[in-house]
Design a protein around this nucleic acid. Sequence first.
DNA 1: ATTCTACTTAGTAATTATTATAAACTGGGG
DNA 2: CCCCAGTTTATAATAATTACTAAGTAGAAT
Lengths: 148, 148
Amino acid sequence: MESLETLLSVLRQNHLKITPQRRLILEILVDDASHPTVDQVYQQVITVMPNVSRTTVYNTLHELVALGVLIEVQDMGAGGGRYDTNASQHHHLLCTHCHTLLDIERDFPELELTPVEACGYRIARHQVTFYGVCPCCQQALASQEESI
Amino acid sequence: MESLETLLSVLRQNHLKITPQRRLILEILVDDASHPTVDQVYQQVITVMPNVSRTTVYNTLHELVALGVLIEVQDMGAGGGRYDTNASQHHHLLCTHCHTLLDIERDFPELELTPVEACGYRIARHQVTFYGVCPCCQQALASQEESI
DNA sequence: ATTCTACTTAGTAATTATTATAAACTGGGG
DNA sequence: CCCCAGTTTATAATAATTACTAAGTAGAAT
Ligand SMILES: [Mn+2]
Ligand SMILES: [Mn+2]
Ligand SMILES: [Zn+2]
Ligand SMILES: [Zn+2]
């Protein structure tokens, strides 16, 4: 994600007030590349400002998405959507067991649909998700099988 | 999706009773390649059997997913997850405006992560989603701009 | 610095999606 | 035809998100 200063200036440019709550949420987001859920952001928020409401977290995340500096990603299985603080074009590697989600920064420019495949759609971008099992979960699954 | 007969035999092989409710849901699924939501399946169900409960639809869809003949897909923006009656490996083309989701049956075998990119994950598969605007929505958006 | 106001927040309620529970029902083997 | 494990339904509970509104405040204007 961009630096805190960049994000603050985006807010200013869009005439959004820089409240302590918004500032805290931005600070948390720039430090968290784990694709957190709304609730994970909220839990971090209330360790610092215990009175912030969930509504404020929802509002702020939605505003950042509307401004294009935050992306919503879907994750099979986990509760609720997750937010991606890396708004640049990139791809993902998901552990199907614990849902840890890593960024893959490489580009895959060779992915192009033929006109007949595209069916008249005007294609803007593509996104690849690799599914697998992370090293931690491989170990956990292996020792689980042993104990059977 | 497989034929109705194939699905019925999968149920039989797994000692699941073929009830009128399940049969109807299967009939609906084999005819619907639109990646419907739970509610869209339910709405079709109750036009034929008005007393079927949502729980039965949820249960049946989950059972089919467990049997591997139905896939859950995530769709940014639309309400709830969607079900994919095409359980084979394939990719998707999503209209970011109306969320129409088309299957792309081509394979992309060249998509491989290097060991360093894979970070120790044991990778099982990958899935590509192309994002764009479908012809209908292109027209709608164009005429909308005209009227401004 | 003080005032003012439109924007923001917190708290609560409402909505929506999904899962849990348990009593009544039934497909299909025997 | 009987029977019972599996299934369905209705209802309640849980979870995720959105709506609403009175109270609070950031930042511009004075
Ligand atoms: Mn990412
Ligand atoms: Mn599909
Ligand atoms: Zn894992
Ligand atoms: Zn469309």
